[in-house]
Structures are given as C-alpha cells and as structure tokens.
Design a protein around this nucleic acid. Structure first.
Length: 276
DNA sequence: AGCATTGTTTCACA
DNA sequence: TTGTGAAACAATGC
C-alpha cells in the first residue's frame, strides 16, 4: 500500500512531531516485524536516546538518534503500515486491499484503525507520555537497527533526467518491472507505476531497453509530476487512473477498455490504445 | 473455500 | 556473474 508518497507523509510526521523527545520504553516484541533482532534488542539500543532526524530514500525511512551518535532506526511500512505519533497518523490511508474505497477527504479515512491496538507492531514510548507506533495490519512492515540502504537506487524525486534514462533505459524486462525495481529507482510501487505509465502514454510491457531518448525524458518528467501530485493530494490512491483499475474499467481519456495482466509480478492495468 | 491484495526477499534458471 | 521471473512471507477482505 504505502509507496513513496505515503512514506514521505510518514517521514514528515515523524520530523514534525517525534524528534527530540526522550525514548523511555520500546515495545519490540513482534519478532517478525523486528527481525533479525531478538526481543529487547531495539529497546536496549534506543531507550534513553532521542530521534534527531527523519530521512527517506524511496519507500525506505530511517531516523537518526542522538545527532548521529546513536544507532539509526529503520522503519519500513511494508504493504499496509502507517505511522502514528500521539493522535496523528500518516502512511497507508486505506489499510485493506484495493477493493476498499478511498474516503480520505475530511475526517479519518479508516475509523477502525484506532480500535485495533493489536496491529501496533512496534512502539516507542516517550518520557513525556506520548508514543510513536508502527501500525500495520498485515505485519510486513519492519523496524530494524541500522538498515542497509546500499541496494537502493536514487529516489524517484531526486534522480536526474540523464541518470534516469541511463538506469531505466536498458534490459529486456518490461518497463513497469524496471521502474518498480528499487535498485534501479527507489519509491515507485505498483499503483504509482500504473499511474505514471498511463500519464506518460507508455506501455508497461515494452522492453525497457527499447525506449528512445524522447520517451525516457517524458517518463522522467511525468514520474516526478505524478509523484509530487500524489504527495500533495494525500497518496497514490488519488491518481487519475487508479479508480479505473477494476473489472470493466475504461481509460479516463479515450474510454477504451483497460487491459489487465500480470507484469513485473503485479496486477497491471493499462490503456492498450494510448499506451504504446 | 479460494482468491485477491499498493512490498520485499529468496531462490531457480538461463 | 548477471538479469529475470516466480514463489514465499503475514494477514485480511471479498
């Protein structure tokens, strides 16, 4: 669920509300979410420290502690994670599969989230009484010390035009698989990929190495625009194509029937007329 | 009951 | 060795 825009919202929430507060207690008992750490390991490393920076590359987020003198705390939202700081939340706005409608206008998009405390998979308790929760219905999120970031490509909003062309424009894999490969470009997930390729009128099944310079330049421009728009509007669900990714869905521009197939291991929807 | 799901990792294979 | 694709992972909803 959470892709770059949701993770950026979570990062900004931590930055705004969780920094410089003393960590007094840590609940790291979920051994799957906290793998490979054993129970108490994160608690021992973090208690008494403060978060001093919230950082992000793609969908990976981490917090520095004690101005960089302490261990960093990696937080990954996985497929359904969100961050809650005191009474404020950010991250996955839906929490369920794509069949759940996004209702995130006024009010809370998911009134049920606060009533299911068993979905708090990792908690930092602050000395002032507040707390930071990694809230994850699916349990595929992660909390880990000193996360490895070296396998990530450049962030989708930071990558330069020439660099994107060089990294994406090669290989025999489908274009969609290429832009979802986090070692090529970091931050694009399944929905953002479908939205971006539809906005750019590029077919997800084209071999990435076949794109010409103009198409790669267009991809760079459109990817940045769609990603920034998703951040501003509150998540990847706000994309123009997204509501049409369903049985019987049609292209919002030309009304052609959308095509559904598995590309890059994920369900993919696209317009066979416009996306070439 | 069986299938689907917005992410990541691991494994098999060419 | 590298690139590619499928399966597994956990949990839930239709």
């Amino acid at each position: 669920m959470p892709e770059l825009p949701e993770v950026e919202a979570a990062r900004a929430l931590i930055e705004a509300r969780a920094l410089h507060r003393e960590i007094a207690a840590v609940d790291d008992r979920d051994s799957y979410v906290c793998r490979p750490h054993g129970p108490g390991e994160l608690a021992d490393a973090l208690c008494g420290r403060t978060l001093t920076a919230a950082c992000r590359i793609g969908k990976s987020m981490w917090c520095e502690t004690d101005g960089g003198d302490g261990p960093s705390l990696g937080l990954h939202l996985g497929m359904a994670g969100r961050i809650i700081v005191d009474d404020h939340y950010a991250g996955d706005p839906v929490g369920d599969g794509p069949t759940s409608g996004y209702s995130g206008a006024a009010g809370h998009p998911d009134p049920g989230f606060a009533t299911n405390p068993q979905w708090a998979r990792f908690t930092l308790g602050f000395a002032d009484g507040g707390e930071l929760l990694l809230f994850d219905k699916r349990r595929l999120g992660r909390a880990v010390l000193d996360p490895r970031l070296d396998a990530l490509g450049p962030d989708a909003l930071e990558v330069g035009k020439a660099e994107l062309a060089a990294r994406v424009g090669s290989g025999a894999a489908p274009l969609k698989a290429r832009i979802m490969d986090q070692s090529v470009i970091a931050g694009v997930g399944n929905l953002l990929a479908d939205e971006t390729l539809w906005q750019a009128s590029l077919s997800p099944v084209r071999p990435a190495g076949e794109l010409d310079a103009e198409e790669l330049a267009r991809l760079w421009t459109v990817m940045r625009r769609t990603t920034r728009a998703a951040i501003k509007r509150g998540g990847v669900h706000t994309g123009e194509l997204i509501p049409h990714r369903r049985r019987g869905g049609t292209c919002p521009r030309c009304a052609a029937d959308l095509v559904r197939a598995t590309v890059g291991g994920r369900t993919t929807w696209w317009c066979p007329v416009e996306q070439t």
